[in-house]
Design a protein around this nucleic acid. Structure first.
Lengths: 229, 229
DNA sequence: CGTTTAATTGAAAGCAGTCAAACTATGTGG
DNA sequence: CCACATAGTTTGACTGCTTTCAATTAAACG
């Protein structure tokens, strides 16, 4: 996700006090209901946002790849409305919340960049609603695979057509609004139909156009070549 | 949705050139795939955002009540990633896009307010994902009814426990990821169980706590008493 | 009033969920 | 290096919530 930033603003951002930290898979970065205190960026590894129903059902509402910021969503809100957790072991750059807030309120360029970043995340979440609400299991699963591939590629983290998907089928189910059992059956059926190949957690996409078509995937909502404007 | 704004910023916003316009129910304010050109605020009436699958299935991804801004989501993005349409006849304040953008980039306070506004909308969309992905038809429907009531009340537009829901069952289905037939059955069953009463499009909630419990509703995600901070 | 749109209802089919068990991979301690 | 523990994947049988298809009734509109 690229967001425009002037040289000035960029250096101001980079001069903020940050701490590097490595955390294990499954670490909580923000907990639903608690006040967020930091602002972290994923340097390596993967993360996700989730919400729970009172009955304990989980819904993953977004996935995050290296390079993405995890806490802008809570930066200016008093209480976190969702939980953020790492999917894998991850390296984080952690910045205290206040300096970021101060900077954002002093520099229009920073606030503007944050805004665009947030707008793009919002767009991705809207597509997520469409995916969960209106596509069947196969299209839904395919769509997630397409999006993940495209985002990885856009971030220069691998190919569209072959990548490591760092999620259990349980987690996939929680992201797709399906049960892990059904995710399993869907993946196997897709494999049997030659839509994908799997090797452990690696997903190989032999025919990108075919998967894209099954997924009803159009990456426009990712706003990848967003202008500075 | 209240967003903090200094007196200065407020007057700057209000001094932007705006046009008043009344549009019919079903009017398109933004079309998916087209470049947005204006920035409008709902003065009266209701609106919604929607996306379509290539097979023509519709998913409504948010609802909007009087007082809410409809185009911030596209203000800084080149191409709209979803469609915005009115649910009812509506009065709009329409501001050309560029002055808003200029203002947002000149005044940190404005950009900051836009950011908070967007963050709250994003939070609501995340809850929408949870609702569609992990709740059954009854809880899902109840949840929408709770949210709508609370938002209306917060905006001083009526009571939590009785209000006009300006949607057909078809639209409700599209918002909930259900068919209109099943929405109908669900509403009738809820009515039969005393969870709600209906009179035309009016929803009456005799026991708010009960509905809230069925809906698994906790309004925290609405961030209604967000601090200025 | 006739026409159109929306709400309602019934019957049947289907996609996904539930429950339970087996299997595989990975990791640990002895 | 093996036995065992644990987490994750895979399968089968069965259930059930929601959809689909079709038809009817009610409401809204000019």
């Amino acid at each position: 996700m690229k967001v425009p930033l002037s040289a000035d603003d960029r250096s101001a951002l980079l001069s903020l006090p940050s701490t590097l930290r490595t955390v294990e898979a499954g670490s909580y970065l923000v907990r639903d209901g608690e006040p967020p205190t930091t602002c972290s960026v994923l340097l390596s590894g993967f993360a996700f946002r989730q919400k729970l129903t009172s009955e304990g059902m989980r819904q993953i509402v977004s996935l995050h790849i290296p390079g993405e910021a995890l806490d802008f969503q809570n930066l200016f809100l008093d209480v976190a409305d969702h939980t953020v957790q790492t999917l894998t072991r991850a390296d984080l750059a952690i910045i205290p919340r206040d300096p970021v807030r101060t900077l954002a309120r002093a520099r229009p360029g920073i606030a503007h960049a944050l805004l665009i970043y947030t707008l793009i995340e919002a767009s991705i979440t809207r597509e997520w609603v469409l995916n969960v609400g209106r596509r069947d299991a196969r299209a839904r699963t395919s769509h997630l695979l397409c999006e993940f591939g495209v985002r990885l590629q856009a971030a220069n983290l691998g190919g569209e057509s072959s990548y490591e998907l760092p999620m259990t089928q349980e987690q996939l189910g929680d992201a797709l609004g399906l049960t892990s059992v059904h995710v399993n059956r869907t993946l196997r059926a897709m494999e049997a139909d030659g839509l994908i190949t799997r090797d452990k957690r690696r997903i190989i996409i032999p025919d990108w156009k075919k998967l894209r078509s099954v997924a009803d995937f159009n990456g426009r909502y990712l706003h990848l070549e967003q202008q500075t404007s």
